[in-house]
Simulated assay, not measured.
Amino acid sequence: MNQAVKGTALPTKPHYAILDGLRGIAALMVVAFHIFEAHATSHQDQIINHGYLAVDFFFMLSGFVIGYAYDDRWGKMNIAGFFRRRLVRLQPMVVFGMVVGAVLFYLQASPWMPKVAETPVWKLIIVTLIGCTLWPLTPSQEIRGWGEMHPLNGPGWSLFYEYIANIFYALFGRRLSKAALAVLVCLSAVALVYVAVFGKNGDVVGGWELSASGLQIGFSRMMFPFFGGLLLFRVVKIKSVHRAFLWCSLLLVIILALPRLGTEKTLYINGLYESACIILLFPLIVYMGAGGGMPGGLQGRLCRFLGDISYPLYITHYPLIYIYWAYVERNTVDGNRPSLNDAWPYMVLVFAGSLVLAYAALKLYDEPVRRFLKRKKRQ
Rank of each mutant, 00 (worst) to 15 (best):
F172D: 13
R243I: 11
Q44A: 05
V95H: 11
P368G: 06
Y318V: 09
L159N: 03
G335W: 02
L192W: 01
R370E: 14
K237H: 10
G202S: 08
G292E: 07
R260Q: 11
G297M: 08
L320S: 07
V94K: 00
L90I: 15
L184P: 04
W325K: 04
L357I: 15
G199F: 06
H317Y: 11
L246E: 09
S110A: 15
P139H: 02
L340D: 05
M113Y: 14
W208T: 01
N270C: 11
S177R: 08
C186M: 09
G292P: 13
A27Y: 03
V65H: 01
G51R: 00
L284F: 14
V121K: 01
K363L: 15
V356L: 15
R330D: 03
D334F: 03
G207R: 00
A117P: 14
A189S: 14
P92D: 06
R337L: 00
G173M: 03
I315K: 01
L250Y: 06
R221S: 09
A38G: 04
I130F: 10
V31R: 00
Y16V: 10
L104K: 05
I279P: 02
A17H: 03
Y311Q: 04
R221H: 04
E264V: 13
F83Y: 15
E142F: 13
F168H: 08
Q216K: 04
W344R: 01
C303Y: 04
W112C: 03
V30Y: 00
A358K: 03
A109I: 06
K239F: 15
L298Q: 04
D72E: 15
G262M: 13
G131T: 06
Y318W: 07
G199V: 05
F59D: 02
G21C: 04
F245A: 03
T12P: 05
H34Q: 12
L357T: 15
W146T: 11
R89K: 12
I278S: 00
L137I: 07
Y365A: 12
S188L: 05
T133S: 15
E148P: 10
L87P: 07
H317I: 10
F172E: 13
I323G: 08
G353E: 09
R86A: 05
G173S: 08
F57P: 00
V183K: 09
P136H: 03
F224Y: 11
A191V: 09
L171A: 15
A290M: 07
L252S: 02
D56H: 03
S110Q: 06
L192M: 11
I309S: 06
W135K: 05
N201V: 08
G353R: 00
P114Q: 05
G335H: 04
H39S: 04
G97M: 01
T332A: 02
H50Q: 14
Y324S: 11
L124A: 13
A182L: 09
L22F: 12
G101L: 12
Y273N: 00
Y311L: 10
D72Q: 15
H242P: 06
R243N: 12
S354A: 13
I321M: 12
K123N: 14
D308L: 10
L10F: 07
I255L: 14
E37R: 04
R337P: 00
M98G: 14
I217N: 00
K115V: 12
Y106D: 05
M77P: 13
T316M: 14
Y169Q: 10
V286C: 08
L152A: 09
V195Q: 01
